[in-house]
Every structure is written in structure tokens, then in C-alpha cells.
Amino acid sequence: MPFSKATIIGVCSPEFELADHVLSFEDLFDYELIVRELGSGTRKSLESHLSEEQIDLASFKHQTTLGSIDLIKRVVEQNIGITFMFDVCVQDELARGTLKKLNLSREFKPKQMNFVYLSDNPTTDFILKMREQFTD
């Protein structure tokens, strides 16, 4: 069931040396990239977009893989690297100014986010009520 749309954005610390520059992906290849683990939806979306740009994730020379969005945000806030994640995951940090959106010359396409559930699952009624609450 469609829920909302989200867009992957590049994120850095406000102290990142290129924070205020217009950047291509190539400008970021020498910096530490913090990514989600294999199999995560965020990573798959990132890899898919890079592939459309004819870029392999391996083009980023320095990578660290972490399995927690919160941990990734904390590491990036400390200016240890940059990351790419869905905008909805960092909206609070962007508003507080602890993270900054990278100004990329090529933006990511929005992705449809969905609720996925089994129709005969006992939690289906709860999911449908929650959907009504979030879409009103």
C-alpha cells in the first residue's frame, strides 16, 4: 500500500570542507563514505541511482559499512565521513543544523515508500488505522 515518497540525499557535517560547494559524485570519491549494510533498502537505492549515473559504489575509495541509521548519523555529525540516506531519516538533524545536505549537481529521484503487510495477518487492522492517522 503506497505510504509516502522519500528521496535519498547526500549528507555531511556542517564542518565538512565541501559542505557549501556544488558537487558531482566524482568530487566525493576521495572522502570517507559511510554506507548501510548489504541488503538494506537505502543501500540498494543508492547503488541503483549510482548505476544510472554509470558509477559503481567501489568508486568511493574509502568506505565504512554500518548497520544502524542512527549510528551513521552520529558518525557523520562528527565529520568522519559523508553518507547518503532518505531525507525523512535526517529531517530533524537538518532542521537542528547538526547535519547538512550536500549540494549535488544531480539529484536523486523520489522513491515510493510502501506499507507491506499480509492481508490475513492479525495486525492488518492496526496497520490500516495507522495509515489513516498518517495520511490525514
Rank of each mutant, 00 (worst) to 15 (best):
R106K: 13
T98Q: 02
H49R: 01
S40D: 03
S105P: 06
A19S: 14
F16E: 07
T65K: 01
E93K: 12
K73T: 11
S4N: 13
L38T: 12
R43D: 00
N103E: 06
L99W: 08
D20W: 07
C12V: 05
E52F: 12
V35A: 01
T123P: 07
S40T: 15
S59K: 13
K109T: 14
N114C: 11
F16N: 08
P122R: 08
M1C: 10
H62C: 09
I80H: 05
D87M: 14
T42Y: 03
I80Q: 10
I8W: 04
V88F: 14
F108P: 00
I82K: 01
Y117V: 06
F3W: 12
L33E: 04
V75N: 07
N103A: 00
D92C: 01
V35N: 06
R106Q: 09
S119V: 05
S105F: 02
D87G: 15
D30L: 05
M1A: 12
V75A: 11
D30S: 05
F3Y: 14
V22K: 05
F3P: 00
I8N: 04
S51W: 12
N103M: 01
N121W: 08
I34P: 06
I72P: 02
I69L: 04
S48Y: 13
E37Q: 07
F16I: 14
H21I: 04
K61E: 15
S105C: 02
E47M: 15
F126K: 05
K5N: 09
I72R: 07
S48M: 12
D20Y: 02
R106S: 05
F134M: 03
S45M: 09
Q54I: 11
S40A: 11
E107A: 14
S105Q: 03
L99Y: 03
G39V: 03
E52A: 11
K5L: 09
I80K: 09
L118E: 06
P14A: 12
E32G: 01
E107L: 13
E77D: 08
M130G: 05
P122C: 05
L102A: 00
F108D: 06
L71P: 00
M130H: 06
S40K: 09
T65Y: 03
M1W: 10
L99S: 00
